[in-house]
């Protein structure tokens, strides 16, 4: 898994992360992360609070600066492959009081395709509506977003990413605080995406549903504890390593390093 890939192989790997380290404000968040994912899988990123799960996604998407490391999306850096990547941020990341309706938010997923300065035409609105139908939100298209329930807001975000028709989807805790209907809708969408050969990476925090949702896992606690097929890595031992036993010495060293060195390569 960690061998050297030739160019042809690399371009078939949806996400390849090599030696990724992220630290902000004296605080190490991710240390020497190394993994790659297989196409057409639903991959869960699990770990305790503060393990850097969201940061991992954000670092891949270039939203937080990385201290070092290399990230390739189908063999190229993220900037060149943006159209292949869909992102579902955490629900709390935006102000839901914003004066737009659900359809407007979903349309935002298409802004990149529409291009600079051009208005959102009927054609794109129809595409957005189609994405809303897929998550069962077509009836709410013209609701102001603050009037939607938490689960409905989450589905709007999901629809926005779907509208983009990407190859890889990154979802940051999509199951948090949602109702049963939304959870079901998301799971259906995940199956759908998988059957179309898309790759989905999901930050997740409830362990009960892990086996049911994910083909593969990235078990994370500042460093990678285990990666691989769920049935192989979702073991008591790995869980204990991820959630339990902190390696204080390692943490101390990482902290000292980021505090003193502060090297941004």
């Amino acid at each position: 898994m960690n061998g050297i890939h030739n160019v042809e192989n690399v371009s078939k790997i949806p996400v390849l992360v090599h030696d990724l380290t992220v630290a902000y404000q004296h605080k190490p968040v991710l240390w020497d992360i190394d993994f790659e994912v297989e196409e057409g899988q639903v991959i869960g990123i699990i770990g305790p609070n503060g393990a850097g799960k969201s940061t991992l996604i954000k670092a891949i998407l270039g939203l937080v600066p990385k201290t070092s490391g290399r990230i390739l999306i189908y063999g190229e850096i993220y900037k060149k492959q943006r159209s292949l990547v869909g992102y579902v941020p955490q629900r709390e990341s935006v102000d839901w009081d914003f004066p737009v309706n659900a359809l407007d938010v979903v349309s935002m997923g298409l802004y990149g395709k529409i291009g600079w300065c051009k208005p959102v035409t009927k054609h794109y609105k129809n595409l957005a509506m189609f994405a809303m139908e897929r998550v069962g939100m077509a009836d709410y298209a013209h609701r102001q977003i603050s009037q939607l329930s938490g689960g409905q807001q989450q589905r709007i975000f999901l629809a926005r990413a779907l509208a983009q028709d990407a190859q890889i989807y990154f979802m940051d805790e999509p199951f948090v605080g949602v109702d049963a209907a939304t959870e079901k809708a998301i799971v259906t969408i995940l199956h759908d995406l998988k059957s179309k050969g898309k790759t989905v990476l999901i930050v997740h925090h409830t362990l009960q549903t892990v086996k049911q949702y994910f083909d593969s896992l990235i078990m994370l606690n500042m460093r990678i504890v285990a990666t691989g097929l769920t049935k192989n890595v979702f073991t008591q031992e790995n869980l204990h390593k991820t959630y339990g036993g902190r390696l204080t010495l390692l943490e101390e060293a990482v902290q000292a390093y980021t505090r003193e060195a502060r090297i941004h390569e």
Partner: peptide, 17 residues
């Protein structure tokens, strides 16, 4: 994979550590 991390930590390791 060991060298990479060790390379960084060696600079911040005091005698106590």
């Amino acid at each position: 994979h060991l060298h990479f991390s060790a390379e960084r930590f060696e600079h911040v390791t005091d005698s106590k550590m």
